[in-house]
């Protein structure tokens, strides 16, 4: 347990000192929110644009942190042999994974809170305390499939940075986080419905409009999590069966 706390402390220190992380995960969604919002009171999908786009940007930030930052960081630690050394210490593989998940969850929480705060201050988005809490809880827990995708990307060797950026931008664009699905062509809209990013943000949009979260959204997210984790396990096993792997 002590070894987990020690690793977590170091991970948090490194995260706070990471400018790339601050830029992508915190400043970018907040800036986009402030720049692209013009009429926060416009109606969209049963709610107003100020609240709708707040969810979009919170999701955008969380996906970026998980897919891009986490993936690049895991890959760097593996590539640099650091993970191999850690495996010779009493810190277990499960402990290492727990720390990464805990750090990622904390980061997601902070991103969502910061975007909420920006929306509340700039566009006077107001919700009941209960609804704020449910929205926060969903955006927090629903980020799990993206953490799984981050783990998968982290297994890539030198290409993790490129893959992470591609997945982040691609999933955000196609999933309707940057432009609402309602404004997309029918083809693009059908494609968006397949995206984990859409399935992650849609329950939060539903919450704003007073609709139910939507069971099919959950099914998609669970399915994606299973696929990403299975792919990660497969790649890991493949790496382990080679003499020079860790």
């Amino acid at each position: 347990m002590n070894s987990i706390i020690s690793q977590w402390k170091a991970d948090l220190l490194r995260t706070v000192r990471d400018r790339r992380f601050l830029l992508i995960s915190l400043i970018m969604p907040v800036t986009f929110y402030l720049i692209f919002i013009h009429d926060g009171k416009a109606a969209i999908a049963g709610t107003d644009w100020g609240a709708y786009f707040m969810v979009s940007m919170a999701s955008f930030g969380v996906v970026g942190a998980a897919v891009n930052t986490l993936g690049v960081r895991l890959s760097a630690e593996r590539q640099g042999g650091w993970v191999r050394w850690l495996r010779t210490t009493p810190l277990s593989a499960v402990g290492y994974a727990l720390v990464k998940v805990a750090t990622q969850l904390l980061i997601s929480l902070i991103i969502v809170l910061v975007v909420f705060l920006a929306a509340h201050v700039d566009q006077a988005v107001t919700l009941s305390t209960g609804r704020w809490a449910v929205l926060l809880a969903w955006l927090w827990i629903g980020s799990v499939p993206f953490a799984a995708l981050g783990v998968l990307i982290g297994l890539a060797k030198t290409s993790a940075q490129v893959l992470g950026t591609l997945a982040f931008v691609g999933l955000s664009l196609l999933g309707g986080l940057l432009t609402p699905v309602q404004s997309l062509s029918p083809t693009m809209r059908t494609l968006a419905y397949w995206m984990p990013t859409y399935r992650y943000a849609d329950p939060a949009w539903n919450l704003l409009a007073g609709r139910s979260l939507g069971l099919s959204n959950m099914a998609y997210l669970v399915g994606y999590t299973v696929i990403f984790l299975a792919a990660a396990a497969f790649v890991q096993q493949h790496l382990d069966s080679h003499p020079n792997a860790n």
Partner: peptide, 27 residues
């Protein structure tokens, strides 16, 4: 206690923080 070859120390940690990280792993 292990010294391996080709291990790069994680970035954004000071020497003391790095040593304390390792100290935290052991009873």
């Amino acid at each position: 206690g292990v010294v391996l070859q080709n291990v790069s120390i994680p970035d954004r940690l000071r020497v003391t923080e790095c040593i304390n990280l390792a100290r935290g792993f052991y009873p």
